[in-house]
Simulated assay, not measured.
Amino acid sequence: MKPRRALGLVKRRGLARRALIELYLAGLDGRGLLLDELSSSLGLDEATCKALVAGLVEEGLVEHRGDVFVLGQKGRESIRVVMTGGVFDILHVGHLATLEAAKGLGDVLVVVVARDETVKRLKGREPLNREEDRLKLVSALKPVDKAILGDPEDFLKVVELIGPDVIALGYDQKHDEKELRRVLAERGLRADIVRLNIHVPGVKSSKILARLLREI
């Protein structure tokens, strides 16, 4: 294969994966994407994007429904989705390192941000920052493709929505992997569970909060 043709093939495959990711993320909001929305997201002119999407439809990766395009089951199986979660009340470099490691496990990283009432129930205190603000901050981080709020009553509802291939746990998150696999199986959910051994010495939200309280 000639170098120029090989480069074009690699570029097309990269764009195709990006298109599948954009359609997956739109699907989390319960919608498809218009051609102009997808071309804007990919940075392509509409004619080039139309040709790209036509190929994805032909391969059975994408479906054309009315005016919009949606991710097909085959397309969903072509990307690896990673899910992680947390409170993210006081963002620090440890969070960033963990999210970067989680993103490295797949193509897409979806982060679940705990609701205010969940934080109060688990930690016995109100969060310093409201859930809407914590959601905005996490959404702005480079490794994060999408951040969504969790469900205060049933955390598995958001797992069902995301449908992750991998669930990444922080080194200090109090989840028992075996028990988590059991409850996932009860709901017909399957995902690899990975415990991330990412720890930045001396950096922990509770320690930062305690230091701030001492200085007030």
Rank of each mutant, 00 (worst) to 15 (best):
M1H: 10
P3S: 06
L9Q: 10
V10M: 15
K11W: 06
A19P: 07
L20Y: 03
Y24Q: 04
L25Q: 02
L25W: 00
L28T: 01
R31H: 13
R31E: 08
R31S: 11
G32I: 06
L33G: 06
L34V: 00
L34K: 14
L35R: 10
D36W: 13
E37Y: 10
L42G: 15
G43H: 06
D45G: 05
D45Y: 03
C49S: 08
C49K: 01
C49D: 04
K50S: 10
V62W: 06
R65P: 00
G66E: 09
D67A: 14
G72A: 14
Q73T: 09
Q73L: 15
E77N: 04
V82F: 06
M83T: 05
T84A: 08
T84W: 04
G85R: 09
D89K: 08
H92Y: 07
V93A: 13
A97W: 00
A97Y: 03
T98R: 03
T98D: 08
L99A: 04
D107R: 05
V111N: 04
V112C: 01
T118S: 11
V119D: 05
L122G: 02
L122M: 11
P127N: 00
L128M: 13
R130Y: 05
R130Q: 07
E131L: 09
E132G: 02
D133P: 03
R134L: 03
R134K: 03
L137C: 02
V138R: 11
S139L: 03
P143K: 10
P143H: 02
V144L: 12
K146Q: 12
I148M: 15
P152F: 05
F155W: 12
L156H: 01
K157Y: 01
V158G: 05
V158D: 10
V158H: 10
V159Q: 01
E160P: 01
L161A: 07
L161V: 14
D165W: 04
L169E: 12
L169A: 11
D172N: 12
Q173E: 14
E179A: 12
E179R: 12
L184K: 09
A185W: 11
D192T: 10
I193Q: 13
L196K: 10
I198D: 09
I198K: 15
I198W: 08
I198V: 15
H199A: 03
V200A: 08
P201V: 08
G202Y: 14
V203D: 11
S205I: 00
K207D: 15
K207V: 11
L209E: 14
A210M: 04
A210W: 11
E215A: 11
I216M: 12
